[in-house]
């Protein structure tokens, strides 16, 4: 019998409720955002972590972090992960690429060892950054690892499309 899914007012044997069954739930159902996730000091997270809400890290994280909200890396935190967030504030140590879709704030205590891609960046004096920085545009692409040096191997060289078109025209004439 599908009892649990039945409406509360359907039970004919029960006394008439004095409160309308359509009364609002006493429990808040959050539709706007997920509750905040906190990784406190002394706790280690390993693996692929995804969240739709804000994330505060003060402990240790290894793997990947992905959130649609604000990511805050505390001053004592150690993050060895690829980080993707809508907004990010970094005050601790990050080893890995950082992609902030909107705004990245790097505090003076921060140590970032990896490529950074963001739309807007704020860097406080004293922060240490090591890696490529791309900012000022929409950040659809993930940060790429360092580009390889051009190779001397003729088979590996590529011709730009415009040059290729010119070469085709010359061959036809």
């Amino acid at each position: 019998m599908p009892f649990f899914g039945a409406p509360a007012a359907d039970n004919g044997q029960q006394p008439q409720p004095s409160v309308a069954p359509s009364a609002p739930s006493i429990f808040h159902t959050s539709s706007k955002a997920s509750p905040a996730t906190v990784i406190a000091k002394g706790v280690r997270l390993e693996g692929q972590f995804k969240s739709q809400g804000d994330v505060l890290i003060e402990g240790e994280v290894q793997g990947t972090i992905q959130t649609d909200g604000l990511l805050t890396v505390g001053a004592d935190a150690f993050v060895k992960a690829t980080v993707t967030a809508a907004d990010a504030v970094v005050a601790g140590k990050v080893e890995g690429n950082v992609l902030a879709k909107r705004r990245l704030e790097v505090k003076s205590t921060a140590r970032v060892n990896g490529d950074i891609v963001c739309e807007t960046i704020i860097v406080e004096a004293g922060a240490a950054l090591k890696g490529n920085l791309t900012s000022g545009s929409k950040t659809d692409a993930k940060p790429e690892p360092k580009t390889e040096a051009p190779s001397n191997d003729p088979q590996k060289t590529t011709t730009p499309p415009a040059d290729a078109a010119k070469a085709d025209a010359a061959n036809k004439t």
């Binding site: 990784i39 002394g42 706790v43 280690r44 997270l45 390993e46 693996g47 692929q48 972590f49």
Partner: peptide
């Protein structure tokens, strides 16, 4: 099945 939380010093 995605990530692991641990307490290295217990808790």
């Amino acid at each position: 099945d995605a990530f692991t939380l641990s307490l290295p010093r217990g808790g």
